[in-house]
Simulated assay, not measured.
Amino acid sequence: MTMNNLEGYTRTFTSFSGADIVASFNGRVIGELQALSYSVAREVAPVYTMGSPDARSFSRGKRGISGSLVFVQFDRDALIEEMHKEYKGAPEIQKIQQYVTNMSGVGSRGSFGLEDQILSGLKSTSSNGANTYGINTWDEQMTKLGYGSTANSGFDDSNLVDFYTPEYADQLMPFNVTISMANEFGQRAGMELYGIQLLNEASGFSVDDVITAKAYTFVARKLKGIQAKDSLKQSGSASAKVSSGQSFTL
């Protein structure tokens, strides 16, 4: 067997398993990712004309890309926590504009979110709602924020909102996912999903479940299929006996 034939056979078996694949979300690798699936669907409609029950042609319409992400659930929300982290060179997480009374934590302009206070029973102070919570309290707090803490020219609706770190996965701004593949032979490949927006999330707990998982569904704007990359195979040698008195070197 010649060296050229041997290389032809080794190149034939270039494949990747889940153990060879990592996915990065806007430059952040999330090790808890267990599965990623996607599908591409396109509308195809038949075109009919009078005088024939058969389709004259088929017209192709809109295309949709959707899929799901499954993460192993340890002691944190893997996706949210990782997207909150800051790495040198990685894009910062995009904060969302939201009403101060609907969020917790501190906003970019220093506004303290009041959601936790309202949910925990912040009592309404108005005379007609002294024993009520919820919407009455929300109304009063929003009105106070609009006028601000100082007596100024009047109502300012810019005081009602601030930019906060997302609390739910569906609040994350669109992001890209890069799938990198590399096996023991030095072969590499990769693919990309662009403009992913998360729609739904689901999880659950049971005494019968050994592993707890969290699943998300998403839609995407564009998909770049799997493409081979330059091999990083390092030089090396090994001898193997082919037939009596002959050997070759890898």
Rank of each mutant, 00 (worst) to 15 (best):
G51Q: 06
F112R: 14
Q141A: 11
S237I: 12
S231F: 00
L223E: 01
G51L: 05
I135D: 12
G64L: 05
E82A: 15
L119S: 12
Q197N: 10
K95Y: 09
I65H: 03
S153G: 12
K229G: 11
Y133F: 15
H84M: 11
T212H: 11
K241A: 11
Y9H: 09
A23C: 15
A19G: 14
A189K: 03
A23I: 01
T217A: 02
S244L: 05
A220Q: 05
D170H: 11
S59A: 15
K62S: 12
D157C: 02
T10C: 04
G105S: 08
L69H: 03
S149V: 10
P53A: 07
D139Q: 12
R76V: 04
I226Q: 12
T249V: 13
G190R: 12
G51S: 08
T101M: 03
D209S: 15
M83T: 04
L145C: 06
P46I: 07
M181N: 01
Y99L: 14
Q117A: 13
D208C: 00
V47Y: 10
N102Y: 07
Y147M: 06
L232T: 15
V106D: 01
F205N: 05
T143K: 13
A189D: 04
G148A: 09
D54L: 12
R188E: 06
T212G: 03
P53Q: 05
K241F: 07
L223V: 06
N128Y: 08
Q73N: 13
E115K: 15
T217L: 01
Q117Y: 11
K95F: 07
E192T: 02
E43C: 00
L198M: 13
Y133N: 07
G129V: 00
I93W: 01
Y216W: 07
K233F: 02
V100P: 03
F185T: 09
A238H: 11
A23P: 00
Y99I: 05
G64R: 11
S120A: 15
G225T: 12
A220R: 06
L160S: 07
S124M: 02
L193W: 01
G236K: 09
N136E: 14
L36D: 02
K144T: 03
N183V: 04
H84F: 01
T49C: 06
A35D: 15
L172P: 02
R56C: 01
L6C: 01
G8I: 06
S108R: 10
L145V: 04
